[in-house]
Amino acid sequence: MIKFILGRLSYLIPTFIGITIVAFGFVRILPGDPVLLMAGERGMTPEHYADMMQRLGFDRPIWQQYLEYLWKLLHGNFGDSIVTKQPVLSDFLTLFPATLELAFCAIIIAVVIGVPVGVLAALKRGSWFDQTTMTAALVGYSMPIFWWGLLLIIFFSGILGWTPVSGRISLLYYFPTPTGFMLIDSLLSGQKGAFASAASHLVLPSIVLATIPLAVIARQTRSAMLEVLGEDYVRTARAKGLSPRRVVGVHALRNAMIPVITTIGLQVGVLMAGAILTETIFSWPGIGKWMVDSISRRDYPVVQSGLLLIAGIVMIVNLVVDLLYGLINPRIRHS
């Protein structure tokens, strides 16, 4: 097992170095000059320009800048934003809980609805339930979620007035946010109505973000279930006269969950991509929106380290899923 873990880890190191090269390289060939953008129409004198380039370290050869960047990374220094002058890591950490909260709610919605629907659809293969839910799943899978979000806003915020337009909580509530998760902090604050307000702000964005993972998980669960139900040992168990519930609950479900867990793990990357769009639509102060804004502001250090941090997170989650998979399914370890 340890050998397996080490094997996976040894893959990660070159990948991670590759990621730093990509993050650094891409960002440094972005056209446009952050120093010129800072000055705007005003422009700046050549001397001042040279001075700024030197201060920000942009005047050195690119490989030197890259090594310096790596060196700083090894010391936990992700650089400072050109715009806010704050350390990128601290900006990331302030905004990350918002994204995490949203993604967490989305994945819960997706799993809690998707898995049972998939199982039921497989059990009742060909029934109207199967057909309806799988059609719905395919629609969800085909959904342009930025449009879906707008539709929900029009309907629930605009026409019905049930949910707020944007933000994380009503401004009437004001309390410390030690965890950064609005749902938890609002409970901790003990203020009446705060939790309800936070929850009502969270509903639409998490539905939007959950749409694609939900569809994928439902479809994947169904096909995994179908496959397992067709396996010999399930047929044998059935033939031996075990109750159908036991067959499904113990044997089939457990084995079907292996690919489903992988699927759920793979949705992390999808969630990060979805967060970019969802956060933009709902003005959700998370890292997706932060990245989009930083790209348009040419905030090199933020784009660079933001890419790195996001890819790092996706990679770690995938590793965990991989390990988990190996744990459940010993066959993988030896292949």
């Binding site: 007035g161 337009v165 944007s166 933000g167 009503s170 804004d293």
Partner: peptide, 21 residues
């Protein structure tokens, strides 16, 4: 005095109408 940061102009208008600001 509270600044509610709302980057989207249409959303700002919507919030103003709803007396959120």
């Amino acid at each position: 005095l509270v600044f509610a940061i709302t980057t989207d102009a249409a959303v700002r208008a919507q919030k103003l109408r709803a007396n959120e600001c």
